[in-house]
Measured scan of single mutants.
Amino acid sequence: MNLTVNGKPSTVDGAESLNVTELLSALKVAQAEYVTVELNGEVLEREAFDATTVKDGDAVEFLY
């Protein structure tokens, strides 16, 4: 899956889609429990991480 992460191209191997929690784990995001996630310009509530799917071509920003 090809994404733009914090403005840079990134690839997650072996996945066509992941939820936000899985993406944080796959990318080994440090202190993931404290990060705010913006997906395609929309800031996500932490409670929505498990239910929100990240797909090929999406833009993700991790805000600390």
Rank of each mutant, 00 (worst) to 15 (best):
E45L: 13
E42T: 12
V12T: 04
T36W: 10
T11L: 11
T36D: 06
N19T: 15
G14T: 10
A59K: 15
D50N: 10
E47G: 07
Y64I: 11
P9H: 09
V54N: 01
T52C: 05
V20N: 01
G7R: 05
G41T: 02
Y34R: 10
A32L: 12
G7V: 01
V54E: 00
S10M: 15
S17I: 11
L27Y: 06
V29N: 03
D56L: 04
G41N: 05
A48R: 11
E22F: 03
K55H: 13
A59P: 02
T11I: 14
V54T: 02
Q31S: 12
Y34M: 11
M1G: 03
G57M: 04
P9T: 07
E33R: 04
G57H: 05
K55E: 06
A59E: 12
V54F: 04
L24W: 02
Q31H: 15
G41D: 03
L39S: 02
Y64C: 11
V35S: 04
V60G: 00
V43F: 08
S25E: 13
V20H: 01
L63W: 15
V12G: 01
K28M: 10
S17P: 08
L24I: 10
T52D: 02
L23Q: 00
A59I: 15
G41F: 04
T21R: 07
K55M: 10
S25Q: 14
T52R: 05
P9I: 07
E22K: 07
T21W: 14
G14D: 07
G41A: 03
T52P: 01
V43P: 09
E22V: 05
L39Q: 01
N19P: 04
L23C: 04
V35T: 05
K55A: 07
E47Q: 08
P9M: 06
G7A: 03
L23S: 01
D58L: 02
L27W: 04
N2R: 12
E61P: 00
A32M: 11
V37M: 04
F49A: 02
Y34A: 09
V5Q: 01
G14H: 10
E38H: 15
E38R: 15
L18I: 10
A26K: 09
T4S: 08
F62Y: 07
V12R: 01
D56W: 06
G7Y: 03
K8N: 09
L23N: 01
S10R: 13
D50W: 07
F62T: 04
V35P: 04
V60D: 03
T53E: 10
V37T: 01
L3C: 05
A15L: 10
L27R: 00
V29T: 05
E33K: 06
L44N: 01
L24T: 01
F62Q: 02
A15I: 12
K28A: 10
N6R: 00
R46E: 06
T36Y: 09
A59W: 13
K28P: 05
K55C: 08
Y64P: 09
F62S: 03
L3P: 02
G41E: 02
T36S: 09
T53G: 06
V5S: 02
E61Y: 13
E16G: 11
D50I: 06
A59M: 12
L63F: 14
G7C: 06
T53F: 15
L3R: 00
P9R: 06
Q31L: 14
Y64V: 11
L63I: 14
A15P: 10
D56V: 04
V54P: 01
V37W: 00
